[in-house]
Design a protein around this nucleic acid. Sequence first.
DNA 1: CTTGCTGCAAAGGGTTTGCATACTA
DNA 2: TAGTATGCAAACCCTTTGCAGCAAG
Lengths: 148, 148
Amino acid sequence: MNHHDPDEILKSASLKVTEQRRVILRFLLNNHGPFTVEEMKELMSEGSFDLATLYRSMATFEEAGLVEKRLFGDGLVRWEYHAHSLCGHNHHTHHHHLMCQSCKTITTLDICLPPEFFKMIEAYNYTQLKHHLEFSGICPECQKKEVP
Amino acid sequence: MNHHDPDEILKSASLKVTEQRRVILRFLLNNHGPFTVEEMKELMSEGSFDLATLYRSMATFEEAGLVEKRLFGDGLVRWEYHAHSLCGHNHHTHHHHLMCQSCKTITTLDICLPPEFFKMIEAYNYTQLKHHLEFSGICPECQKKEVP
DNA sequence: CTTGCTGCAAAGGGTTTGCATACTA
DNA sequence: TAGTATGCAAACCCTTTGCAGCAAG
């Protein structure tokens, strides 16, 4: 299958192909993010979107493993496309981020937890295991601004 | 100073000592958590608390470094007491958690990221660096329940 | 006595839901 | 055609805020 074609991705996830889902998924495939639902609505030039549709699509996509939720502690949920492992290593592979608390700039970190971590946690016999790992702080640019 | 006395902790953080803050802090010192604001209101037997006071206290305590915010991706913010490093290693030392998405049981994991992680991130020159790391899944008990 | 905290109530903002309509398979 | 997704608007829930009264230092 073509891992860049929204239609094929939706079909292989057993989801109905609708114009809205196609556009949303294409947006996430072409833009790294992560994005808030509000940002997605703003940035998607194609078509018009009801926020409820965005929220419902994100919930559906998350359940299908197509997107991942990102939390930075500022009260907003951010989403990004999550390629399946079979897609090989690209910029959609599992990773984490560093966000500036002031200007909200998000830097992608090509790291994840070491295997020992997961082995240790497997001992608890939890299924559907997920982890949230994100960093935040004040970026060099905003550090300068803060000095009056 | 006595690291178990709410009054002394508040004073050394340059915060005014009020009855509400005393009770909230004592609760967090005696109970590991993390707790949502709602849970804290329910569980604190002493006195009555307005939710606004709880929210404001948590914001104040966080700024003073007395508490840490915990995110598990279910849309709720949870708080727990955060001892300063000078307190030595106890159950309030920095750590992370594993939460069951179904029954919300929270297990404390006495782990944190390996030093290499932080070194790598220091290269970005961010100040006030924080990280959120939490695990979630379905616990063995709830796995049984799910079979109808 | 001055500054700052608390309680109450109202407002705010993000997210979810009910329902009629439109569309996919 | 049956079942599902969408749009719209209202409802929800957690959180924040304005303001008057009260308490701490």
